[in-house]
Design a protein around this nucleic acid. Sequence first.
DNA 1: GAAGATTGAGCGGTCAATCTTG
DNA 2: CAAGATTGACCGCTCAATCTTC
Lengths: 149, 149
Amino acid sequence: MWRVFIECAFALIDILDRELQEEGGAEAGWSLRWYDLLAHLDMAPEGLPMNELASQILANKSGLTRVVDRMEEAGLVGRERPRADRRVVRVFVTREGLDALAAARAVHHRGIQEHFFRHLQRRDVEALRPPLEKVRDHLQPLRPGRVSR
Amino acid sequence: MWRVFIECAFALIDILDRELQEEGGAEAGWSLRWYDLLAHLDMAPEGLPMNELASQILANKSGLTRVVDRMEEAGLVGRERPRADRRVVRVFVTREGLDALAAARAVHHRGIQEHFFRHLQRRDVEALRPPLEKVRDHLQPLRPGRVSR
DNA sequence: GAAGATTGAGCGGTCAATCTTG
DNA sequence: CAAGATTGACCGCTCAATCTTC
């Protein structure tokens, strides 16, 4: 059972990542990591401090600076230092980033549907959710740089 | 729901990986990838061709040669070219590899229990398995270098 | 001194090109 | 030419050290 779960996890991450890369087209660099980051910024129109962003995304905090560097070069996000506390860097999505996200979202949602939900009954989904939420809530604070929410 | 699943996947991989690293102690390089590889070789005492090994492990085929290089340096596995077909390289676990696997297995199983099964009821496990098996069987052939089994 | 973020060095993964054997 | 595996070059991730601002 564990083996099945972990194989699904690796395979889903691998395949969904590839789908985003291929759909990124000219724009090189597209990955689950970019998608995840944009999706979070999309929910915070005023932008997020690097720190807070780091604690929400799937991947490790490590390397976030460079990911944002590349996405900034690609024009998808911007940086801003608030006057209130000049240690902080707020990251925000650009107009271009929102457009790119919308395109990627179509691809990504189709992939999730096709590779995951397509194989689950409604009652499977309902059965999965509560235990997985417990697992998530248990795991979150164990990861470096995360806080229980 | 999808978000919960994918967060669990990333967090579990991250945490279980760290646990193996820390328990590897002196032996640097320990990771889920090493564990996964040794576990597969353990089930094939006569060894496996690189190719076959590649199609069974969690991670990508890519870089397998170098992973085996490092594990060979660490004394955990060995290579052998069968006379029958000298294109092939068979990888096998050494005695030392089996010992290391046994130690790692204790740590890893404890982690899986603590971070995953601890939060599931027996009926959750039974409910999860069939749909996840469908997902796995659907995904497997989509990954590069894999064949449906 | 602590919090927030960046930098540099090193390691590991990835893809395409190559080598060897059938 | 095909199958099996390795190599080299590049890129991304990771950790610890550093810089800036509070």
